[in-house]
Amino acid sequence: MAKQARQNTKERRPVRHYVKEWRVYRDLTQDQLAERVDRSRGLISQIESGTTELTEEMVYALADAFRHTPGDVFRVNPLKEGTVVDITDALRGQPADLQAEALGFVRGIVGGRKQ
């Protein structure tokens, strides 16, 4: 019985996530991310290395810290060219009039969609 339990555990594959990639993309250290999610740096290290599985609560906390959706933590590698389009990042440091124009454009697209 114990042998069978060990085999089942061994066969489980960890769920692939992009926590480390999101942390690097957001230019955060493990300590900074740990502070944002109110956990230890050691836990962040364990999550990134795959030795600790993500809980639902942690997925939401990380997504909030990364300013993205929980699904993106699993689906999107932000370090791959063109996989993340974050308008706030694209507009950071741009003149206020350009930011306002871009926001108006996005509002027009979103507001004009029929549901």
Rank of each mutant, 00 (worst) to 15 (best):
M1W: 11
A2D: 14
A2P: 02
A2V: 03
K3N: 11
Q4A: 09
A5K: 14
A5Y: 11
R6P: 06
T9N: 12
K10P: 00
E11L: 14
V15F: 03
V15E: 08
V15D: 04
H17V: 02
Y18R: 03
V19E: 04
K20L: 00
E21H: 01
W22D: 10
W22F: 09
W22Y: 09
R23I: 03
R23V: 09
V24P: 04
Y25S: 06
T29I: 08
D31C: 00
Q32G: 06
E35W: 01
E35L: 06
R36A: 15
V37D: 03
R39Y: 04
S40L: 02
R41W: 01
I44E: 05
I44P: 06
S45T: 11
Q46H: 13
G50D: 01
E53C: 00
E53S: 04
E56L: 11
M58K: 07
Y60L: 14
A61Y: 09
A61W: 08
L62Y: 05
D64T: 05
A65E: 10
R67D: 15
H68S: 10
H68L: 03
P70Y: 00
P70W: 01
G71R: 11
G71N: 14
G71L: 04
G71H: 04
D72M: 11
D72F: 01
V73G: 09
V73Q: 10
F74K: 12
F74D: 10
R75L: 14
R75K: 04
V76D: 07
V76C: 13
L79K: 07
E81Q: 06
G82H: 03
G82P: 04
V84G: 09
I87Y: 10
I87G: 10
T88Y: 14
T88L: 09
D89Q: 02
D89G: 04
D89N: 07
A90Q: 05
A90M: 13
L91C: 07
Q94H: 04
P95E: 11
P95D: 15
A96Q: 08
A96S: 09
Q99G: 05
Q99L: 00
Q99V: 15
A100V: 12
L103H: 08
F105T: 13
F105S: 01
V106F: 10
G108D: 01
G108K: 12
I109T: 07
G112Y: 02
R113N: 02
Q115W: 03
